[in-house]
Computed example of a mutant assay.
Amino acid sequence: DTWQQFPPVFISKPDPQTVYVGKRAVMQCVIAGTAPLNVVWLKDNQALPKVPAHYQSSCEKNKHTLEIPSVEAADSGLYVCKVSNKAGTAECHTELCVIDKPNFVRPLASVAAVVGAALHLECQVDEDTGVTVSWTRDGRKVHQSPDYKLLFEDKTVTLDILKTTLKDCGNYVCTVANEAGTAENRTTSGVVLQSAGHSCYYCHMV
């Protein structure tokens, strides 16, 4: 009889989590109530696709788990665990935020600067969570210094050379990376020599 049964109750619920693309996500809850319990997982109010290799649900005693071994960007969303028995129903919600690798949405442009003048390189990415930035010129790392200002702010990456010299001529590569992956963007910088007669030429670029 119904009065002898206990409706399902969540003893513990999964916490919201942030996961990088390619990493593992685990949502777990502990449920009490009279057996048998019917447990269903949903994402954004839709039943999960029947793809065992991607979504893996399991149950050990009263512990119910949904695992995504290798998270994709499309896995971001609101997940619901619904449970029911003859005495009633219950559900809990949790959010999964997926962070993808950074991609360049505005690439570097080829630039030229007059010797002694400033040189500005700028590009923009679509992700900045956990992102690190590095610059190289002709394969050699460019470091922050009084002459070189490196900045990464509001998803915009900049390299400013305050006073250009001939050695600043070359191929520049900006590399952005986080735990989900890496992206590179490259450009060529020329340096212009200007004489008193205002004639100029470009230095040779490797």
Results as ranks from 00 to 15, higher is better:
residue 136 T to E: 01
residue 186 R to G: 14
residue 80 V to M: 15
residue 203 C to F: 15
residue 119 L to G: 03
residue 107 P to F: 12
residue 147 D to M: 14
residue 157 V to H: 05
residue 79 Y to G: 07
residue 170 G to H: 00
residue 101 K to P: 14
residue 147 D to N: 11
residue 121 L to H: 03
residue 188 T to H: 08
residue 76 S to Q: 07
residue 203 C to Q: 12
residue 143 H to N: 10
residue 77 G to N: 04
residue 87 A to F: 01
residue 187 T to A: 06
residue 147 D to K: 14
residue 83 V to N: 05
residue 149 K to T: 11
residue 153 E to A: 12
residue 159 L to M: 07
residue 101 K to G: 06
residue 172 Y to D: 00
residue 124 Q to S: 08
residue 95 E to V: 02
residue 187 T to N: 01
residue 124 Q to R: 08
residue 150 L to A: 02
residue 188 T to L: 03
residue 76 S to F: 06
residue 136 T to S: 01
residue 138 D to A: 00
residue 201 Y to G: 08
residue 169 C to R: 04
residue 196 A to K: 06
residue 119 L to H: 05
residue 128 D to A: 09
residue 191 V to T: 01
residue 171 N to H: 10
residue 119 L to V: 06
residue 146 P to V: 07
residue 76 S to W: 01
residue 135 W to G: 01
residue 114 V to K: 08
residue 160 D to Q: 14
residue 75 D to F: 10
residue 92 C to T: 10
residue 144 Q to E: 13
residue 145 S to K: 08
residue 161 I to H: 02
residue 178 N to G: 02
residue 105 V to A: 10
residue 102 P to D: 03
residue 184 E to L: 09
residue 105 V to S: 09
residue 134 S to K: 08
residue 187 T to K: 07
residue 113 A to T: 04
residue 197 G to C: 09
residue 153 E to W: 13
residue 177 A to H: 10
residue 98 V to R: 03
residue 82 K to W: 11
residue 159 L to T: 00
residue 137 R to M: 06
residue 89 T to A: 13
residue 182 T to E: 11
residue 196 A to G: 12
residue 114 V to I: 13
residue 108 L to A: 00
residue 204 H to E: 14
residue 138 D to I: 00
residue 91 E to I: 04
residue 188 T to A: 05
residue 179 E to Q: 11
residue 169 C to Q: 05
residue 86 K to N: 11
residue 89 T to Y: 08
residue 132 T to K: 12
residue 111 V to P: 11
residue 158 T to S: 06
residue 156 T to H: 08
residue 140 R to N: 08
residue 158 T to E: 01
residue 81 C to I: 10
residue 118 A to L: 14
residue 109 A to V: 08
residue 113 A to M: 05
residue 177 A to D: 13
residue 202 Y to M: 11
residue 201 Y to S: 10
residue 146 P to T: 06
residue 151 L to M: 13
residue 80 V to D: 15
residue 80 V to N: 15
residue 110 S to Q: 11
residue 103 N to Y: 13
residue 157 V to I: 11
residue 173 V to M: 05
residue 80 V to Q: 15
residue 151 L to D: 15
residue 107 P to K: 07
residue 128 D to V: 07
residue 197 G to E: 14
residue 75 D to I: 02
residue 83 V to K: 04
residue 169 C to F: 00
residue 115 V to T: 09
residue 94 T to E: 06
residue 90 A to G: 09
residue 153 E to T: 10
residue 103 N to I: 05
residue 146 P to R: 06
residue 133 V to H: 04
residue 140 R to I: 03
residue 153 E to Q: 12
residue 185 N to Y: 09
residue 86 K to F: 03
residue 165 T to I: 02
residue 180 A to D: 03
residue 78 L to H: 14
residue 169 C to V: 09
residue 105 V to T: 10
residue 128 D to Q: 08
residue 88 G to C: 03
residue 127 E to L: 12
residue 164 T to G: 05
residue 171 N to S: 12
residue 148 Y to G: 04
residue 150 L to V: 01
residue 204 H to W: 14
residue 205 M to I: 15
residue 184 E to G: 04
residue 104 F to G: 05
residue 187 T to D: 04
